[in-house]
Simulated scan of single mutants.
Amino acid sequence: DFPFPFGWLSGYLAILVGAGLTFVVQSSSVFTAAVVPLMGVGVISMERAYPLFLGSNIGTTTTALLAALATPSNMLLSAVQVALIHFLFNLAGILLWYVVPALRLPIPVAKRFGDLTARYRWVAIAYLLLSFLLLPLAAFGLSLAGSTVLAAVGGPVAGLLLLVVLVNVLQCHRPTWLPRCLRSWAWLPHWLHSLEPWDGLVTHCCPCQACSAPHATTKKAHCYENPEVLASQHL
């Protein structure tokens, strides 16, 4: 990190590093696959990896730009326009989710999701199926039915999700702003406000126990391991 008062520049330097390394390897997936294990062993923190990944999203747009420049002259303008849309879209993500520190919401969300996945292994599989298969198929199916149907179904669902998120935030930070009945979700059925019933169902149905939470084990320390990781474990 840069010394005070230039510490805020460290993140932007990490963005440039992520963009440059991704440009060199020409693959954001390769860059991400190289950084994630370093995060797992504690070499890179979540806060430092976040701008690296944002920079990787910028670096990966160079592939489209290079491909656009290689198109025939009669299609060059359209190809460059599409490549620039890709670049500007990813750049807008940085402006939205990084420039203002209070809006760096992916960091706490990732930590929360990591905690859930460590406790319930099946959450990762459910997330992949929901985000990359079920939700896109549902949106595609509703779009085929027409914009009216899409708005009539998607609008209330999106509004309900936003309301739940808002209530959760207020429950954590400003519970007195809420009516007494909304200061907790205890009044809902247990399976609607806890993953415990779902975990019992999944672990009961899964014969290989791969989705079960890992058992606590005693870990032997090695001199080459990161001290921050060792400090967070019970040895």
Rank of each mutant, 00 (worst) to 15 (best):
F23K: 04
L21T: 03
H173D: 03
F113S: 08
T218I: 02
G154T: 02
L133K: 04
L178I: 04
R119A: 13
A33S: 13
P101T: 03
L66R: 09
Y224S: 13
M39K: 03
C223R: 12
L65C: 05
V164A: 10
L161V: 11
Q171W: 07
A151D: 08
W187H: 14
C206W: 12
G93S: 07
V25I: 14
Y50D: 04
S147M: 08
A216D: 12
C223L: 09
F132V: 14
M75Q: 15
W191R: 04
R180K: 13
V35F: 05
P106R: 06
L116E: 12
L195V: 01
L235H: 14
P189Q: 02
A102L: 13
G59R: 02
A158Y: 00
L182I: 06
R119D: 09
P179Q: 01
L77T: 12
C223F: 09
V100Y: 14
F53C: 04
A14L: 14
A216Y: 01
L235E: 03
T218Y: 00
A92C: 06
H215M: 09
T22A: 02
L128E: 01
Y12N: 01
T117V: 15
W187I: 14
G200W: 07
F140A: 11
Q233N: 07
A70E: 15
T63Y: 06
V167N: 00
V164W: 07
G7A: 07
R112D: 13
I107Q: 11
L52I: 07
F89R: 07
W191N: 03
Q233W: 09
C211N: 07
C206D: 15
R112E: 15
L142Y: 04
I15M: 10
V167F: 08
G200N: 10
G7E: 10
L9Y: 02
A14F: 13
E196H: 11
N90G: 05
C211G: 12
A19K: 02
W8A: 14
A83K: 02
A216H: 09
H193T: 03
Y12W: 15
A102M: 13
K219W: 12
P106L: 09
Y127R: 00
I107E: 09
Y224K: 08
L142C: 03
S184C: 09
V82S: 13
T62V: 15
W177P: 08
A151N: 10
R121I: 07
L166R: 00
I58H: 02
